[in-house]
Each structure stands twice: as structure tokens, then as C-alpha cells.
Design a binder for these strands. Structure first.
Ligand SMILES: Nc1ccn([C@H]2C[C@H](O)[C@@H](COP(=O)(O)OP(=O)(O)OP(=O)(O)O)O2)c(=O)n1
Length: 994
DNA sequence: CTAGCGGGCGAG
DNA sequence: CATCGCTCGCCCGCTAG
């Protein structure tokens, strides 16, 4: 570019594009906004505030980059000084002497005023193949002397060269990150495009689209020949005249050409209808209308967009819009990808033991909010308070920008509450696709940089990069400088590649410290903590909130406040806890492991568990379970609908399981049920409101991946948990302890042979034929069917005609009624352990119940009851009461109560329980029943039954007390249980019709 | 004493 | 119209055996 062109450019300058706006009041000095705001907003504000001058007119013809670049030429001498020592800017170097932590935030170099493409960037990639890029950057800057403002020619020439190499880098990056390394179709080959004014998609995004599709891009109108197309959304009258001899098109020309994979005729998108005589299209929309078109829903059979959980498409449509689901799914994908690559690249070794590491914790700033904001031209990330959410009231905020945070808005808040803090909060829609694109770019940049030996995925917007520092002595200053420089380059590349998303990076020697450094660096900053002295580490973390430590959430902070710090301060710091605790104290108040972990974290050290990711990443990232949780929009009326829903969930899970080539030996059902006192419809539309949860797991004799098997087990568990269908608010199915099919030895499916029983190599104990044969007839048939399903060979069986029930117990009682005499004979006195272990938990439990109940039923109780005719308990009032029994009122679950009950029975086995205690206990049971905790009552009943059983096993005679206990169990306990089960209206399968 | 269960917690 | 409150892994206390 020559002076003449520039002169023309300057004289051609016309009006401003940006409309003047009132700047917001300056944020408080300590607000994070202060740093952040100055990154992008400052320039724009300056520009719009002052009255127009001739100079401004000139400047208005420049795009943002060029403008800022020009402004930055003032800064050239300083920049040069920095470039000579790229990793340690002068002021920082001084700090480094006593402050181990150097925080560089946005207004500071190296990002310069605007992180985007400053004229002199300092690239230092060792692995950079396009050496052109590095040559054109820092050496150029060093060569050029201090520029006077207005020394345009040199500036633009540097910039053009730099831009060109930058374009090459981006083209490659996009190919690798988003197109599997293949080239994009060169749709815009031989096009040189200039973008005028505000557009949607914005200038940066269009730039990207153009260059990756083979076009070139001009940041300024330089001479009439070189630019082939001008892209604009709308034109002022003046521009219209000025551009009349150009091909001026709407942005849709770019996007639709790309969509069509070919360059569409520009005339169809022409903004100026002049000599070409084309009909003018109404493409140019005012920015306010420039929203992405809402996606169309296919209308095939059912409403795919429906929030009706009874619809077959519900699961998919819910997942498609659930941020938390996407987050989890992305994470799983990243982990799987990591494992895949890690196995492929066998050369990748975990760091040698004791190697010094630099850990870089990289995280996009307010990821969703930033991405969503950048795809909407109306909003300014650095000035408007923004959040991403679906709705306007009880909708959760997935992410809010730092402007909103300065008002106290937080991720996860409801929009309504956030608006109380920040009335002008603007809600943006989700843009999951773009989140994914930007994430890929980030990971590609990290991987392609060649700086790191390992890149550990944390989430869609976050990664931990590990660099081995071999050969460098401890505390070596150059290591620190190197880390600073790496950090800087990554941040710049990501910003450029994503058209404006900032990442922050924390860097240190441990995972914990890197995380804390990251926290300190945010937003849009970096923090390298290279010092190894404990004193300086302590000084660094001293003042940080305890809450910032990984694994320390609200509950742990509460516990600490309550038991250790006694609420001395509202927001305890790491230093507070460190000063006031010991390893022992922490372990006793928080549990052994947690206490130990926290103790190490307080000194900035990793513990065994969190550093596992470094030592054995493959194991760390390996999938151990898979689950589906739905706690939204669950509104069912009948158990049948729930069964169908469970079927769909299991179908979904087994599909995944199949893709993973895995099988599961265990399934857990978690039921989320509306609290008794909670309103039927909660504040949040289709939300779950306040709920209790119940869970139950069952095992398969042989690991499986069959939806039918799993589904049956889950449906059965659901009935056991006894939740009335209308009160169901959430349901989760987890498949645990997954095993890779290829890892499993075929022996598990080998036909049963007698000699296998003694074979030491068999992981699977053989079926005990005697035990099997001693089962009562009906049970035996159920068990046989079960074993057959698993292709486990059986001893020969008599022909059976069993009914199609899936509850062996029910069948059993249904068929045998009260014929206790025969039952007693058929039931073995003890259950064979090996045999039991072969059975699914469901059946195991029912057998055990049977066992207990049958024995009970055949004991003296039944006889006495029938003899007496009524079940009136003969309880005296003057027996010693057991004071602990009072605790029934406060005990929430029967786990802790089991012990109590046992000791209660122990103490009263001779004389019987006190009537007051029993009444109290009754109340407790009634309460449990009211809360729908049928299974807890069941458990208590079971505990009582088996404990009485235990007593009777070594007492030949029937003491008075035990008889009373047994009567209580049969006369009051079991009716309570059946009543509770009936009330829950869910077909609990436990039948007590003795 | 250990294994396994149900439940809690934290993370993004 | 609202609204899309998931999913994983570890740890804890308790109990059965
Ligand atoms: N309760 C939450 C937490 C996070 N996210 C999503 C939105 C976030 O953008 C993304 C990343 O989470 P971060 O914890 O990293 O939070 P941000 O990126 O929003 O902010 P920060 O700058 O603090 O990292 O995950 C979410 O949907 N709901």
C-alpha cells in the first residue's frame, strides 16, 4: 500500500457509522468490571463521546482493528522494550522479586488496549511451521522505529503482512478444529472483501468465514481495484453514492454462499440497485431485528418440541435444550476422545515421578454469556449486563458476564432474583452450536501450540495443560518467563480465533495452585505463580476465600464455620482456616479423606486423589458409570406411564452402553418425590419443587446390556420405593461398575459344569445344585427362569407352568396361601451363600424376606394369635422405659435407628417393651408413612424381624418379651406398612397377607 | 474387618 | 407463554456378614 492510496482513503472519509451513546457510569474502583470494561468498551466510548472532528471522520473509515492499531502506535517504544524481554515486562519483573504472583489483566500488555491483533504481536511458538508468521510480527516491530502518529504507511504495511500470516494460521486452525483437517471449499477465492459498518454476523465473524473459504480480507478500502466486494447491512445515502461502483452485498451473501457450498450470484444480495438494474432485496435489517431465525421443528407424528414427559420424544427434546445435559455430554465426549488419543499415541507417557511440572489451567471467561453476546450485534459484552437463560422469571442463568456480576448476579441464579440485583439485565438465548465450535478452537489451539505434553479436558470451556519442566533448575527465572509468554500467546490466539472470546489462565506447579491462580486471573487475565517457596505460596493463598478451593462448596464451608471457625468471619479465607486448624481437627470434623485433602490444599499442595489425573489420566478419565437423570417436567398420572418412561430411559442407556461396548452388573434407581408439604405445582414452571429422594440398586447375576432386563429391574425397584405416580418429580437410572465387553472373559458365559465348582480360576462360583433344589417349588421356577435368561446352565427341572408375574414373592404367596406346614418343609434352614450370590438383588431380597416371614409365620406367634383370636397387646405400664427411644422423633432414616431398635429389643427381650415407647415408636412410623417412606418402614420391620429371629436362635423357650415383640411386629407394624404401601398407590410388591 | 448400600457433595 | 433443575465420581456413615 502506498501513500497515495492512503491519502485517498483519508480524503474519502465520510460519516460515522456508530451512533453516539451515553456511556454507563464508571464502575466502582474495586469492581472487576473496572479492568474488564477498559478492554473493549473504552475505545468505543471515546469515539462516540466527543464531537465529530475532521480527524474523527478520517478515523471512522477504519475498522476497529486498524483504528486501535493506529492508536497503539503511540505506544510503540514501550512495546518494543517489552518485546525484547517478552516474558517479563519491565514493571512486572520488579514485582516478581517479592510477589510470586504476577497478575496481568486486560488493560496491561501484552494484550495491549485491545487484545485483538495489536500491530506488534509477540509470537514465540517454537513449533510454528509458518515461520512467516513469526517473522512478520516481533522482528518487524523491532525493526520499525518509534512511529509518530500519522506514520500510516509503515503501519499499514506491517499490518497487512501480519494480517496475511494471521489469516493463514486461522485458516489452518479452523480446518483442524472444525473440519477434520480438510480444507474448506474455496468459495471466495480471488475475492477481496471489505466490510463496512455494523453487520450481523459481525465483522470478525465474517472475516473468519471469508478467510477460511479462501477469500482475502481488507481492513480498509485501499484503492478502487483491490477490493472486489463490500459487505454491509445498510448504507447511508452518502455511502450509497460512494460505493456505487462496487459490488455491495448483504452479509447473507457470505453465509448463504457457505451454506450452499458455492459462491452465489452477488446480484441477488446487492444492496445498491443502480446500473445493474437488480431488484433491491430487503435483506438489510436493522440490528434490532438481526436475530438468528428460530429453528424449525419437524411435525412428524408427535410434537418434538413438547414439554410433555408422556410423549415419546420428550427425552430428546429436553436434552437438546438442557444446558446441564449438554455440559455433561460434552464432558463425556472430551474424556472419551482423550482416552482414545492417549491410547493411540502410545508415546504419551504420564510425567515421570518427581518431574517438575507447569500446570496451566485455561478457562473461557463467562463462556456461554460471552459466546451468546458475540453472536448478537446489539449488545456490548463490556458494557451491558448480560446473561444466558431460557426464560425471564424462574429460569436459571447459565452464565452471566462480568458486568452483571458486578451487581451481584451469579451463575445458577434465577433470572427474577438476578433482576432484583440488576434491573437492566439482558437475557440472551443459548447457542449450543457455537459453544461447541469455540471449544473445539480452544482445544485445537492448545494441542497445536506444541507447548504442552498433556492436555486434560475439564469441560467444554476449560482444560488443564501440563508442561514438563525438565532440565530447568528450580525457581529458574526463564521458566517463569516462558510460562508467561506461553500463556500470553494462547490467550491471544483464542481471542482471535473465536472473534472475541477471552480466556484466563492460571499457571503454577500444582493443580490446586493453578486453579487458585486462574481464579485470581479472571476475568481476561493471567497469573503465573512460579515461586516454589512455601512462604510465598502461603502469602499468595492466604487472603483467598476458602470457597475457592476445589472441592470446597457451600456445605463444607458451613461445616467449617460451625465446627472450626465458629462464624468469626462471614466469608472465611484459606488463611483463616489454616491458622485455626490442624490435620486432626479437620479429619475429625470433615471425615478422614476430606480432612486430609483440605489440609494439603491449605498449603497449596495436591493430594493423592486430585493428582491422579496426572499420574494415571487414562484411569482417571475412564468411564465407570452411565446414567440419565430427569428432574424437570416430570408429571405422571399412572404407573403405566412411568413404566413407559422407564422403558425409554433404559432404551437410551443401553444404546449408549452398546456404543461404548460395555455391560453393567448393577442398576440404581433414584426417585425424586414431592415433599408432603410442598405444593403440587412449584414456583418454577414444570420444576420439581422441594423433594425427597429415595434410591435402590439391584444387581444382575451376569453383567448385561439388555434394555429389557434393566428396565424390568428398574420398574420393580420403582414399586419398592412406593412413590405415588402423581408425586413423582424426578427419576434417575444409573448403570454402575461398567465393564468393557472385550475385557470380560468368555468364561462367564461358559455352560455350567459340575467340575467348575472346584476350579480355582473361575471368577464365578458355580451354582450349588443342592441349594437350588432345596428352594420351595414356586421360587425355584422363578429362579430357574432367571438363570435361563442368563444362559446359566441348570440342573434338570420338572416341567413348569409358571404365571407371568415378575414378583416371585407374590406368586409364591398367591399360590401357596397359608399352607405354612408345607412351606416349612420346603424352606431350607439357611440360605446357601453361593446360591444367593448368583441371584439378582431383587430376588435375593424377596427370598430373604420370605425366609424370615415364613419362619415367623410358622413360629408360635401365629399359633398364639389364632388361639387368642385377637391381637391385643398385653403391655404393662410399669416397666422401665428406654430413654433413647425418644430419639425416634428426630431420626430421619432407619439406618441409624436400626442399632437403636436392636438394643431396645435386647433390653426388653425378657419383659417386653414399654407401652410408652411403643406408642412413641408408632408415632414415628406414622410419620414415616406420611412422608411416604414405605421402604424405610419395611427396612425397620426387617431389622426387627431378623433381630427377633436372632434371639430365638439361641433361646429355646419363648420369653414373654419376645412374644410381645413378635405380636407387635405382626399386629401393628405390618398393618402400618401395608397401609403406607396402599396409600402410596403404587403397587408395592411386599405382601403381608399372612 | 471389609464390602456394599444409600445418601451427600461438588464440579461445570 | 413459561421453561428445559444433568451427570459423573468420590466420600461418608452405617450395616451385614
Ligand atoms: N451452574 C452452572 C455453571 C456453569 N454453567 C455453564 C455455563 C458456563 O458458561 C459454563 C462454564 O462454567 P464456569 O464455571 O467456567 O463459569 P463461566 O465460564 O460462566 O464463568 P467464569 O468466568 O467464572 O469461568 O458452564 C451452567 O450452565 N450452570
Amino acid at each position: 500500500m502506498d501513500y497515495e492510496e492512503l491519502a485517498q482513503l483519508l480524503s474519502d472519509a465520510s460519516s460515522l457509522d456508530a451512533s453516539p451513546q451515553e456511556p454507563p457510569p464508571p464502575p466502582p474502583p474495586d469492581s472487576p468490571l473496572r479492568l474488564y470494561d477498559s478492554s473493549r468498551g473504552a475505545i468505543a466510548r471515546e469515539r462516540s463521546q466527543r464531537p465529530f472532528s475532521q480527524q474523527q471522520r478520517l478515523l471512522s473509515t477504519l475498522d476497529d482493528d486498524s483504528l486501535v492499531g493506529l492508536v497503539n502506535t503511540f505506544d510503540r517504544p514501550t512495546q518494543r522494550a517489552r518485546l525484547r524481554r517478552p516474558a517479563a515486562p519491565a514493571d512486572d519483573a520488579a514485582d516478581a522479586e517479592d510477589d510470586p504472583c504476577i497478575v496481568t489483566s486486560s488493560p496491561e500488555p501484552p494484550s495491549s488496549v485491545v487484545p485483538s491483533t495489536p500491530p506488534a504481536s509477540s509470537r514465540l511458538s517454537e513449533s510454528d511451521s509458518s515461520s512467516d508468521r513469526s517473522r512478520s510480527s516481533s522482528p518487524t516491530a523491532a525493526r520499525v522505529g518509534p512511529l509518530k502518529f500519522g506514520d500510516y504507511a509503515q503501519y499499514f504495511s506491517d499490518k497487512t503482512a501480519h494480517q496475511h500470516s494471521r489469516d493463514e494460521y486461522m485458516r489452518k486452525l479452523y480446518q483442524d478444529a472444525l473440519n477434520g483437517g480438510r480444507e474448506y471449499p474455496p468459495i471466495f477465492k480471488d475475492c477481496t472483501i471489505y466490510i463496512n459498518g455494523r453487520t450481523f454476523p459481525d465483522r470478525l465473524q465474517l472475516h473468519q468465514k471469508i478467510i477460511i473459504h479462501g477469500g482475502s480480507f481488507k481492513h480498509f478500502l485501499s484503492g478502487k481495484k483491490s477490493v472486489t466486494h463490500i459487505v454491509a447491512s445498510n448504507l447511508t445515502a452518502k455511502k450509497r453514492i460512494e460505493f456505487q461502483n462496487y459490488k455491495v452485498v448483504a452479509p447473507a451473501w457470505i453465509t448463504e454462499s457457505i451454506a450452499a457450498s458455492k459462491r452465489l450470484p452477488w446480484q441477488d444480495y446487492a444492496l445498491i440497485t443502480g446500473e445493474y438494474g437488480q431488484q433491491k432485496l430487503q435483506i438489510a435489517r436493522p440490528p434490532a431485528a438481526a436475530l438468528p431465525a428460530p429453528e424449525q421443528q419437524p411435525a412428524d407424528g408427535f410434537d418434538a418440541n413438547s414439554l410433555d414427559c408422556k410423549q415419546p420424544g420428550f427425552l430428546q427434546s429436553f436434552f437438546a435444550k438442557s444446558r446441564l445435559h449438554q455440559l455433561s455430554a460434552w464432558k463425556a465426549d472430551l474424556r472419551a476422545l482423550f482416552c482414545e488419543k492417549y491410547v493411540e499415541g502410545a508415546h504419551l507417557q504420564p510425567p515421570p515421578k518427581g518431574a517438575r511440572l507447569a500446570i496451566f489451567h485455561v478457562d473461557f471467561d463467562c463462556f456461554f454469556a460471552t459466546v451468546s453476546a458475540l453472536s448478537d450485534a446489539r449488545y456490548d459484552l463490556s458494557r451491558d449486563p448480560l446473561a444466558v437463560a431460557h426464560g425471564n422469571n424462574s429460569s436459571e442463568i447459565a452464565s452471566c458476564n462480568y458486568v452483571a456480576r458486578s451487581f451481584g448476579v451469579k451463575n445458577g441464579m434465577w433470572v427474577r432474583s438476578a433482576r432484583r440485583l440488576c434491573p437492566n439485565l439482558i437475557c440472551l438465548p443459548y447457542n449450543f452450536e457455537q459453544y461447541e465450535v469455540n471449544s473445539k478452537l480452544l482445544y485445537q489451539i492448545l494441542a497445536g501450540s506444541g507447548f504442552f505434553q498433556m492436555i486434560l479436558p475439564i469441560s467444554i470451556d476449560e482444560a488443564i495443560c501440563v508442561k514438563y519442566l525438565d532440565g530447568l533448575p528450580d525457581g529458574d527465572a526463564s521458566a517463569h518467563q516462558q510460562c508467561e509468554a506461553i500463556t500470553r500467546q494462547i490467550r491471544r490466539d483464542v481471542f482471535d480465533a473465536t472473534n472475541g472470546c477471552t480466556v484466563s489462565i492460571g499457571c503454577s506447579n500444582s493443580l490446586v495452585l493453578a486453579r487458585l491462580a486462574l481464579k485470581k486471573a479472571k476475568p481476561n487475565g493471567q497469573c503465573v505463580m512460579a515461586s516454589l517457596e512455601q512462604d510465598s505460596i502461603d502469602a499468595f493463598i492466604e487472603e483467598l476465600p476458602l470457597r475457592d478451593l476445589p472441592g470446597v462448596g457451600a456445605t463444607i464451608v458451613d461445616k467449617v464455620q460451625q465446627h472450626i471457625l465458629f462464624e468469626q468471619t462471614a466469608e472465611p479465607t484459606i488463611g483463616d482456616l489454616k491458622r485455626n486448624s490442624s490435620l486432626q481437627l479437620l479429619a475429625s470434623k470433615l471425615g478422614t479423606k476430606t480432612g486430609h485433602k483440605l489440609h494439603l490444599f491449605l498449603s497449596g499442595k495436591d493430594d493423592e486423589e486430585n493428582s491422579r489425573v496426572l499420574r494415571d489420566p487414562l484411569d482417571y478419565f475412564a468411564r465407570k458409570s452411565i446414567s440419565v437423570d430427569i428432574n424437570y417436567a416430570i408429571r405422571f398420572d399412572t404407573i403405566h406411564e412411568i413404566d413407559e418412561f422407564i422403558d425409554r430411559i433404559c432404551e437410551h442407556l443401553t444404546t449408549k452402553l452398546g456404543e461404548l461396548d460395555m455391560v453393567t452388573p448393577q442398576v440404581t434407581l433414584k426417585v425424586t418425590r414431592r415433599c408432603e408439604h410442598a405444593p403440587i405445582e412449584p414456583a418454577k414452571y414444570l420444576g420439581s419443587g422441594e423433594c425427597d429422594t429415595f434410591s435402590r440398586s439391584s444387581r444382575f447375576g451376569v453383567p448385561t446390556c439388555e434394555a429389557g432386563l434393566i428396565s424390568t429391574e428398574v420398574k420393580s425397584s420403582f414399586r419398592m420405593l412406593g412413590c405415588p405416580p402423581k408425586d413423582l418429580r424426578g427419576i434417575a437410572v444409573q448403570l454402575n461398575k461398567l465393564e468393557k465387553v472385550s475385557d470380560r472373559v468368555c468364561q462367564l458365559r461358559l455352560p455350567f459344569r459340575e467340575q467348575d465348582a472346584s476350579s480355582a480360576g473361575s471368577r464365578f462360583p458355580a451354582l450349588n445344585v443342592n441349594a437350588f433344589n432345596s428352594l420351595p417349588g414356586a421360587l425355584k421356577e422363578d429362579v430357574r427362569t432367571e438363570l435361563l435368561k442368563r444362559k446359566i446352565n441348570l440342573p434338570p427341572s420338572p416341567p413348569s407352568k409358571r404365571s407371568a408375574s415378575n414378583s416371585p414373592v407374590k406368586d409364591y404367596w398367591g399360590r401357596h396361601g397359608k399352607r405354612t406346614e408345607t412351606l416349612k418343609q420346603e424352606m431350607p434352614s439357611t440360605l446357601d451363600e453361593d446360591f444367593m450370590n448368583h441371584l439378582p438383588t431383587q430376588i435375593q431380597r424377596e427370598i430373604k424376606w420370605d425366609h424370615a416371614i415364613v419362619k415367623k409365620a410358622s413360629s408360635s406367634v401365629r399359633n398364639r394369635l389364632s388361639r387368642k383370636g385377637t391381637g391385643v397387646l398385653n403391655l404393662s405400664k410399669n416397666r422401665p422405659s428406654k430413654p433413647e427411644a425418644v430419639k425416634f422423633q428426630s431420626l430421619e432414616r432407619p439406618l441409624g435407628i436400626s442399632r437403636l431398635i436392636k438394643s431396645w429389643i435386647d433390653d426388653t427381650i425378657d419383659n417386653g417393651p414399654h407401652i410408652d415407647d411403643l406408642n412413641l415408636f408408632d408415632k414415628y412410623l406414622t410419620k414415616l408413612a406420611a412422608k411416604g417412606k414405605t421402604h424405610h418402614i419395611l427396612k425397620i420391620a426387617r431389622t426387627m424381624s431378623s433381630h427377633l429371629e436372632y434371639h430365638s436362635s439361641f433361646t429355646k423357650s419363648n420369653p414373654q418379651g419376645r412374644q410381645e415383640w413378635e405380636e407387635y411386629l405382626l399386629i401393628r407394624m405390618i398393618p402400618t406398612l401395608t397401609a403406607s404401601a396402599a396409600k402410596s398407590d403404587s403397587g408395592v410388591q411386599v405382601t403381608f397377607d399372612l
